[in-house]
């Protein structure tokens, strides 16, 4: 599945071109603001990739990813400010701790569809309240100030560009990791779970164990993104991690296209950059943003990634391989799993 109908040679060329553009961007656009915002979009793209693993490849609806983003961010910020630990250690710990926190979700992985969504949403709300109320640890609503720039050994990535290139490297690493994961024994097990749980069980796969592992892997990656977020913003506030942020990450995946890694990245850019670009519209900008979001959803499940692939196919005059059926997707079911009306 999820194997694009695109010939892989073209795909690789496209990926390399996109990567080259991103590497050149901070030098071509020296305005600090542009680099800053694109950097932010890359950080959210990492979080969106992680959710794609859950939603797009395992069929697990999580509306709680902001919790892991926040745990990663606060861990990294506290370790580098209060405990003056080096960034590398803080970064790794951020991922590990987020992964560790996701273990508390193991019991709820057996919930289905919207029920799982609501439970993860509840988790997100609880974690946000902890950020807000545990002032001794998180600074409460005052937030945490003076978070240092990332550093790698002797290099302190103080400039906007250096920070940017580091985040880009992490994004590329996350993409490659997930790209390798999907066609592996682990990745196949996850996709099997999404497509048919009974057949998965009967093939000897422990569904609860793999769902939990998917949550942990996603949480670790999201925790890394959180760490990057903290050292990019230099300032943390609990309001960065409300459940609305969880919904935003979900929007990224949905807009980009459920079941596509590239789509998650595209979606993260659209959701992060669009409101910025719409600033010219002033007070109408969020109205237009909402309307565009609805319009994107009319594109079908393959989202912007699917749309751009279709356009590119046209331009390159490629025919879709007739084998790939345009069947309705299981993702809708993944979310609607309990047919309440049929009870």
């Amino acid at each position: 599945m999820f194997k694009s109908e695109f010939p892989s040679a073209y795909l690789w060329i496209a990926r390399i071109v996109v990567l080259a553009i991103f590497i050149v961007l901070p030098f071509a656009y020296p305005q600090k603001y542009v680099v800053h915002i694109v950097n932010l979009a890359m950080i959210f793209a990492i979080a969106a990739l992680a959710l794609q693993l859950l939603l797009g490849f395992t069929g697990l609806l999580s509306i709680g990813q902001a919790a892991f983003l926040g745990i990663g961010a606060y861990t990294s910020a506290i370790l580098t400010t209060t405990y003056k630990l080096p960034f590398e250690i803080a970064f790794i710990t951020a991922g590990l701790l987020a992964g560790f926190a996701s273990l508390t979700l193991v019991p709820i992985t057996r919930l289905r569809g919207v029920y799982l969504g609501v439970a993860t949403l509840g988790f997100s709300i609880i974690v946000h309240l902890v950020f807000l109320n545990e002032e001794w640890l998180t600074g409460g609503s005052f937030g945490l100030l003076n978070i240092p720039s990332p550093s790698l050994g002797p290099w302190i990535l103080k400039s906007e560009t250096a920070n940017y290139l580091f985040c880009l490297a992490v994004l590329v690493a996350a993409f490659i990791a997930l790209h390798r994961l999907l066609p592996s024994r682990f990745g196949r097990a996850l996709q099997a779970i999404m497509l048919d749980e009974d057949a998965t069980r009967a093939s000897g796969i422990n569904v609860t164990y793999y769902k939990s592992q998917a949550f942990v892997v996603a949480a670790v990656i999201t925790g890394f993104a959180g760490s990057l977020f903290a050292h990019h913003a230099h300032y943390l506030n609990p309001n960065d991690f409300t459940f609305w942020k969880s919904i935003e990450v979900l929007l990224m995946v949905a807009v980009g296209g459920i079941g596509s890694l590239a789509g998650a990245i595209v979606g993260a850019f659209v959701i992060t950059l669009l409101p910025e670009y719409l600033r010219v519209l002033d007070e109408y900008r969020m109205v237009i943003f909402g309307a565009m979001l609805i319009a994107f959803m009319g594109l079908g499940h393959r989202g912007l990634a699917g749309l751009s692939a279709a356009v590119a196919m046209r331009l390159l005059r490629l025919r879709p391989q007739s084998d790939i059926p345009s069947s309705p997707t299981p993702h809708a079911d993944a979310v609607a799993a309990p047919r309440w009306s049929r009870q």
Binding site: M1, R185, R188, A192, L195, S203, P330
Partner: peptide, 23 residues
Amino acid sequence: LFTELTVLQNVMIGLHTNGKSGV
């Protein structure tokens, strides 16, 4: 069947228990 996977991938899932490698 895992309808969106290829025929080969469907069969490979049946082999899950013969493997060890993980994340």
